[in-house]
């Protein structure tokens, strides 16, 4: 076993940036309030002090301009990391992400690479309301050319950030603001986690749960409770939805025969539908029950705590749905 320390998710992400920026002087970091302030979530703490204003630069409130600059700099040989802070604000920059960053490698016939990381934090952190809670990952998965990363643990955020920075194409790197300050074990030495390799977070034999980001935590908590009832749950975190590790999911479903997909984003037309389709078309014979999905309701995020709880998937909801699946 490699040596580990218990550090915050956000600290692990900063370590990755720090180590990569020391290694490669073409990496720079831009975003709002990420300089001396160190970021809303402390997600860039210490970078400005170490690398200075030239490589760690506060931005005006110009999301499209920031990403556009990232695209141009990446085409011109740099490796920019653009911090959007709240994923909600990424909508302001969609044109540059979709039409430029994602597309240029293809339309240039591979002549221009766009090694750009766009980083942002998603999700509800309890009543953060419609403009500070969104989970837009499926939007990006739909765009050819973008890789989409959803780290759910401190160890993963560090290892995946390193891979994101070293990737030669644009990567949408989406953390969850709810667990930025939660601690987890992180290896001490150098490591990177490859894209497209799912993590089997918990082994089980009765039901498979596929979950991303914060929903992995919910699924693990539900699995713990269900264990006491004698239901054995396997929890799979794809870690990146593009590329998507179909194999690990299919193997698990072939073993358990039951699948629940938990999705913090609105379920309609989202990634959970894609994953369900993959399993239905490639492991249909192994299924003992129809694939089930638990996602957010098709509403904006309400501010009111009662309404918000009604809108989002919960641990209780997961427990109930797994019971139903096992009984069916």
């Amino acid at each position: 076993m490699p040596e580990e320390r218990n550090i915050q998710y956000v600290e692990a992400s900063v370590e990755a940036l720090q180590e990569e920026m020391r290694r490669d002087s073409s990496i720079f970091y831009i975003g709002q309030g990420i300089g001396q302030r160190g970021g809303n979530f402390k997600q860039s703490k210490g970078l400005w002090e170490e690398f200075g204003d030239r490589r760690v630069r506060d931005m005006p409130i110009s999301e499209l301009g920031q990403v556009g600059m990232g695209v141009g700099a990446a085409m011109a040989g740099a490796r920019p990391v653009v911090d959007i802070v709240f994923l909600d604000m990424i909508m302001e920059a969609m044109g540059q992400i979709v039409e430029q960053a994602a597309t240029i490698h293809y339309t240039s016939n591979g002549k221009f690479k766009v090694p750009l990381v766009v980083r942002a934090a998603m999700g509800s952190a309890r009543c953060t309301g419609p403009h500070h809670s969104r989970c837009f990952y499926s939007w990006f998965a739909h765009i050819p050319g973008l890789k989409v990363v959803l780290p759910s643990s401190a160890a993963d955020v560090k290892g995946l950030m390193k891979t994101a920075i070293r990737d030669d194409g644009p990567v949408i790197f989406i953390e969850h603001k709810f667990f930025y300050n939660k601690k987890g074990p992180v290896p001490t030495g150098e490591y990177a986690i490859p894209f497209g390799v799912a993590n089997v977070c918990r082994k089980g034999k009765d039901v498979t749960i596929l979950a991303m980001s914060l929903m992995v935590w919910h699924a693990l908590e539900a699995a713990e409770r269900l264990q006491k009832e004698g239901i054995s749950v396997e929890v799979i975190d794809p870690r990146t939805i593009v590329p998507f590790d179909e194999q690990t999911l299919l193997e698990s479903v072939r073993k358990t025969g039951r699948l629940l997909i938990v999705d913090e984003a609105q379920q309609f037309c989202g990634f959970s539908a894609e994953a369900a389709a993959v399993v239905s078309s490639k492991a249909f014979d192994s299924l003992d029950a129809p694939v089930s999905r638990l996602g957010a309701l098709h509403t904006p995020h309400p501010f009111n705590p009662v309404l918000e709880a009604a809108m989002l998937p919960s641990v209780d909801g997961i427990v109930a749905e797994v019971r139903r699946l096992v009984a069916s």
Partner: peptide, 9 residues
Amino acid sequence: PIASGAAMA
């Protein structure tokens, strides 16, 4: 903005 980014690099 892409030109600004190239200039930044």
